[in-house]
Design a protein around this nucleic acid. Sequence first.
DNA 1: CTCCAGGCGTTCC
DNA 2: GGAACGCATGGA
Length: 281
Amino acid sequence: MNNSFKYKASLDMEAFDLWQILLSGQCFRSAPDGDYAIIEAGSHRGRFSQEGSTLLCEVESDEALHNFWLPYFDGGRDYKTAREHLSKIDSTMEAAIKTGHGVRVLRQPVFETLITFIISQRSSIPRIKGVVKALCERYGEDMGDHHAFPTPERLASLGLDELATLKAGYRTPYLHAAAQFAAEGGLDLIGKMPYEEAKELVMGLKGVGIKVASCFLLFAGGYMEAFPIDVWIEKAINRFYAGKLDHTVFSPYAGLAQQYMFYYIRHIDGAKGPEEYMKRI
DNA sequence: CTCCAGGCGTTCC
DNA sequence: GGAACGCATGGA
């Protein structure tokens, strides 16, 4: 029955901190499990921990590790070069990188990222996780020891009254509309079309504003290099940078710069590690 | 009781 | 084009 952790591997990851990644607010399908974290994405499930720079992986297969999880953790990107570029900008960015040196920009499944960030608006992380979990358990395919994220077709087939039982509140019709859009192939070109085009496309959906669109395009669309400055909407980031910098200096790592800053403003009062993640849920 | 949580759509000027 | 305002829900 429980076969999703049958394959174990240790990987040496440069500038990689599992706990910082999970605390950086990018994904809503993870939970602590002892010294490990169980992460779900798409139909996959993995159990991960870290000792020094070694990432301990327990996943369903070697194929899943290399074809799904490594891309998920943005394994192909040169973070060393990115950090060197961003560190030169100013002392604030340098401090942010020092604090959140192991943060990565995840590359999550497209449909699930759109749906979870629509749910996230004006809510809290524990509550978001609760709604997403219920969504998977009710409507996602039974994988034996967990449930996959529901398909667009499945969600699109649900009535508004049924969806409303998830207690997502006023976001319920937004979820329905996004699922229908995805089921009709509306998201098929995300990651392939230019950033501005993708942004316009997704912001045409009800309940998708600049914030949800930005998170979606960055965490699922693979638009890190093209990430423009209009997404520096986080108030605390603007506290540091609004109107004070030529934003082109962040290019081509603006998306990563935002995540460093996002982590920094949440941990500026003290370094956090696995303990903080464990006590979150 | 009020206030807030990784916002957004609508309305009004 | 920008500034108020309401909004479902649940926890502090």
